Amino acid sequence: MEGDVTYVMRYWMEGEINTFIKVWISAYLSLCYCYFAGKMLPKGHRRLAAFLPVMALFPLLPLQLHSLHLGGITSFFLAWLTTFKLLLFAFDQGPLSIPSISLPRFLAVACLPIKLIQPSKSRENGKIHSEKGHKSFLNYAIKALLFALIIKSYDYEDHIHPRIIMVMYCFHIYLSLEIILAIAAAMARGLLGAELEPQFNEPYLSTSLQDFWGRRWNLMVTRILRPTVYLPVLDWSSSILGREWAALPAVMATFIVSGLMHELIFYQLGRVKPTWEITWFFVLHGACLMVEIVVKKAVNGRWRLPRLIGTILSIGLVMVTGSWLFFPQLLRCKADERGLAELAAIGTFVKDIVRALNFTVNTYISFS
Rank of each mutant, 00 (worst) to 15 (best):
residue 1 M to G: 11
residue 8 V to Y: 02
residue 13 M to R: 11
residue 17 I to P: 03
residue 17 I to T: 11
residue 23 V to Y: 03
residue 36 F to Y: 15
residue 40 M to D: 08
residue 41 L to T: 09
residue 41 L to N: 05
residue 43 K to R: 13
residue 47 R to Q: 13
residue 47 R to P: 04
residue 54 V to Q: 04
residue 58 F to D: 01
residue 63 L to Q: 06
residue 64 Q to V: 08
residue 64 Q to H: 12
residue 65 L to C: 03
residue 67 S to G: 12
residue 69 H to K: 02
residue 70 L to C: 02
residue 71 G to T: 00
residue 79 A to M: 08
residue 80 W to C: 09
residue 82 T to I: 10
residue 83 T to P: 00
residue 86 L to Y: 02
residue 97 S to H: 05
residue 102 S to L: 10
residue 109 V to W: 02
residue 112 L to T: 06
residue 114 I to P: 00
residue 118 Q to N: 15
residue 119 P to W: 14
residue 120 S to G: 15
residue 121 K to H: 14
residue 131 E to M: 11
residue 134 H to C: 15
residue 134 H to R: 10
residue 141 A to R: 00
residue 146 L to M: 14
residue 151 I to S: 04
residue 152 K to F: 14
residue 153 S to G: 13
residue 154 Y to T: 05
residue 155 D to F: 12
residue 160 I to A: 05
residue 165 I to G: 00
residue 167 V to E: 00
residue 175 L to I: 06
residue 181 L to T: 03
residue 182 A to R: 12
residue 185 A to I: 04
residue 188 A to G: 12
residue 190 G to P: 01
residue 193 G to V: 12
residue 195 E to S: 11
residue 196 L to V: 12
residue 203 P to L: 05
residue 205 L to M: 07
residue 206 S to F: 02
residue 206 S to H: 04
residue 207 T to N: 04
residue 208 S to C: 06
residue 209 L to S: 02
residue 216 R to C: 12
residue 224 I to S: 01
residue 226 R to N: 11
residue 227 P to H: 05
residue 228 T to R: 03
residue 231 L to V: 13
residue 239 S to V: 09
residue 250 A to T: 06
residue 251 V to R: 01
residue 252 M to L: 15
residue 252 M to Q: 14
residue 260 L to M: 14
residue 273 K to V: 09
residue 284 L to D: 06
residue 284 L to S: 14
residue 287 A to H: 03
residue 287 A to P: 01
residue 299 V to K: 07
residue 311 T to E: 01
residue 311 T to L: 06
residue 318 V to N: 01
residue 322 G to H: 06
residue 323 S to W: 08
residue 324 W to Y: 14
residue 339 G to N: 12
residue 340 L to G: 04
residue 341 A to P: 00
residue 354 V to A: 15
residue 363 T to A: 14
residue 363 T to L: 15
residue 365 I to M: 13
residue 365 I to F: 15
